[in-house]
């Protein structure tokens, strides 16, 4: 079973031409805070292909959010290189949507106005995206809440609105930094199903940071497990489960086996003392 597991080794060069083109290339990327400070990322290499759903999984402090922020162009790596569509990331790439752990909705804007934040920044006409906005609101069950203010919505609805905001301009890359971490378990399951559906409908590349093993296995094509201090890739796991996945898949032995592999690794890292 360990045949599908590659430990601490970057994927071998792909020769198969049927694979989709490379979207994100992370090469030997390190990030150190301060001159002699903490090494948050230690020579991380990772390739993400177009349309892939990739989760970065790890305990807090493993640098998974740092890696995502480097890809988003919000932080500059101190070593190595990250490129998106072959272009080195020096500032936030165009055509990207980000969903943060907090929904970061602006209290003074209605849900619809919040969705239009980016187009407002760009000075674009809203009418161009109006149909898309209503389509997204409909899809995420926010129909009728266009003119509501964030404070009037529940946590789940707020995060749905934040996802709608990220998807409005139809980005080909969506970065999600523990987007469902603050939600209750049931809402979280529901959001996972909705996210899978929206991903399947347009096949965007999604980079998804989480600390939930089940969530990562359920959603992903590949799960990258990171170890803390310094942040390194400890394991890359290809999740070969049929799609669309239903919640019941979590009771299947294959699913349980993927989760067990990750848990075992966490145990070896000393993060999980199961006795």
């Amino acid at each position: 079973m360990s045949a599908s597991v590659q430990r601490a080794a970057p994927a071998p060069p792909m020769i198969d031409t049927s694979l989709p083109p490379i979207h994100i290339a992370i090469t030997d990327t390190s990030k150190r805070y301060g001159a002699a400070g903490v090494l948050a990322l230690d020579r991380v290499s990772l390739t993400v292909r177009e349309g892939e759903f990739l989760s970065i999984l790890g305990p807090s402090g493993c640098g998974k959010s740092t890696l995502l922020r480097c890809v988003a162009g919000l932080e500059r790596p101190t070593g190595g290189e990250i490129s998106v569509h072959g272009e080195t990331v020096r500032r936030p790439p165009a055509n990207m949507g980000v969903v943060f752990q907090r929904d970061v909705l602006l209290d003074w804007r209605s849900i619809l106005d919040n969705m239009f934040l980016q187009t407002d920044f760009r000075g674009e006409k809203r009418s161009r995206y109006m149909a898309r906005a209503h389509e997204l609101l409909d899809l995420f069950g926010l129909k009728g809440f266009e003119n509501a203010y964030p404070t009037q919505l529940s946590g789940g609805m707020r995060q749905r609105a934040a996802i709608c905001r990220a998807l409005l301009a139809d980005p080909d890359l969506v970065l999600m930094d523990e987007p469902f971490g603050a939600l209750d378990a049931l809402t979280r399951d529901q959001m996972n199903l909705e996210l899978q559906k929206i991903w399947a409908s347009a096949r965007r590349t999604i980079l998804f940071v989480t600390h939930s093993i089940g969530e990562a296995v359920f959603l992903s094509d590949r799960v990258v497990v990171m170890s803390p201090r310094p942040g390194r890739i400890a394991m890359t796991l290809t999740i070969d489960l049929p799609r669309p996945r239903r919640m019941a898949i979590r009771e299947m032995p294959e699913f349980a086996h993927y989760c067990a592999q990750i848990r075992t690794l966490f145990g070896e890292m000393g993060l999980l003392k199961d006795e």
Binding site: L74, P92, M96, V98, F100, L117, Q118, F121, L175
Partner: peptide, 23 residues
């Protein structure tokens, strides 16, 4: 101003001036 709010604006490639007025 919460940092993640400014991160959001930066990820949308908003200029400093636009971030000031809108956030």
């Amino acid at each position: 101003v919460p940092k993640d709010m400014l991160d959001l604006a930066s990820s949308m490639r908003a200029s400093q001036l636009a971030q000031f007025w809108r956030i």
